[in-house]
Design a protein around this nucleic acid. Structure first.
Length: 271
DNA sequence: ATAATCACCTGCTCGC
DNA sequence: TGCGAGCAGGTGATTA
């Protein structure tokens, strides 16, 4: 479910309900996520007051004086605010119970998500230390992409989805941004001009920012922290449309596989 | 260093 | 209706 816009939508949805609250209890019904949920999580969190909910890449971070709660939604995770007496359903693995009788509940069928406690400076944690710039920051632009891509033979789509290059560009938005920029996803990253990378960086920013405005892309049952679905899906131009006709030129869209990921493009509009 | 593949896990759709 | 195959929004670990 979650790409960057969905994670950001979640962050915006839950933060107002968490800020200022103290954590009254922690319930872990299934500790086997991507990594084990720490057995001493409650000891770190109970009694602590939440100030803010931050995001770095697709990680959600809740900082405390002694360390940071780090969460990731993986492929199928979602977070929502519930009334504390709502009984947990199947795949409702973790609750952070708040002092106002509500709770933050993690639901994650595939369990690729994570809930970790990081002591001290979270930015030097191995999961975060090597990450590339945020796509919506000024550090990410066409000149940066061009410089990082020289002599790289991997497909530009794989390059764009590499978190060490830039974070937060998942499969949906990589497909969409490459279509918008008119670049074939299987072109070698090192063989694309500066001008075209400038266009690509602009389209990545535009597509992500617009999707965040729409509340993310709802596939299956994603809902933001406020329970509202995302509205971006209806605007997807290529993702999930393999075999259908291009909305710009009517050519049949090609669906292939790059780096094990479903890839859709138009061979007329993208070169 | 870079590129490709594997792995984690459940649920759903498809073809037979 | 049942069953195996393949696929799904991510990304760290492992292998060439």
């Amino acid at each position: 479910m979650p790409e960057l816009p969905e994670v950001e939508t979640t962050r915006r949805g839950i933060e107002p309900h968490l800020a200022g609250r103290r954590i009254a209890a922690v319930a872990v019904r299934q500790p086997k996520l991507r990594w084990p949920v720490p057995a001493d999580l409650a000891e770190q969190l109970v009694g602590q007051r939440i100030g803010a909910v931050l995001r770095r890449a697709k990680y959600l971070l809740i900082p405390f004086p002694a360390g940071t709660l780090l969460m990731h939604l993986g492929m199928s995770g979602s977070l929502r605010i519930i009334q504390g007496d709502e009984p947990p359903g199947y795949h409702d693995h973790v609750d952070l119970v708040l002092d106002d009788g509500r709770a933050l509940r993690l639901h994650d069928p595939r369990r690729f998500g994570a809930v970790l406690w990081v002591n001290g400076d979270v930015t030097v944690h191995p999961l975060l230390a090597g990450l590339g710039p945020e796509p919506l920051s000024d550090a990410f632009d066409g000149d940066y992409l061009y410089a990082r891509s020289r002599r790289r033979r991997a497909p530009v789509k794989s390059f764009l989805m590499d978190g060490r290059v830039v974070v937060g560009v998942g499969n949906i938005y990589a497909n969409e941004a490459l279509f918008a920029a008119g670049i074939r996803p299987d072109r070698a990253a090192g063989r694309i001009s500066l001008a075209r990378y400038r266009r690509l960086a602009d389209e990545v920013k535009r597509v992500l920012a617009h999707s965040i405005e729409q509340g993310g892309t709802t596939l299956r049952d994603f809902v933001g922290g406020d329970g509202k679905p995302g509205y971006f899906k209806q605007e997807l131009l290529v993702y999930g449309r393999g075999g259908e006709s291009c909305k710009l030129c009517r050519e049949l869209l090609i669906e292939t596989r790059l780096g094990q990921r479903s890839t859709v493009f138009c061979r007329r509009c993208q070169r």
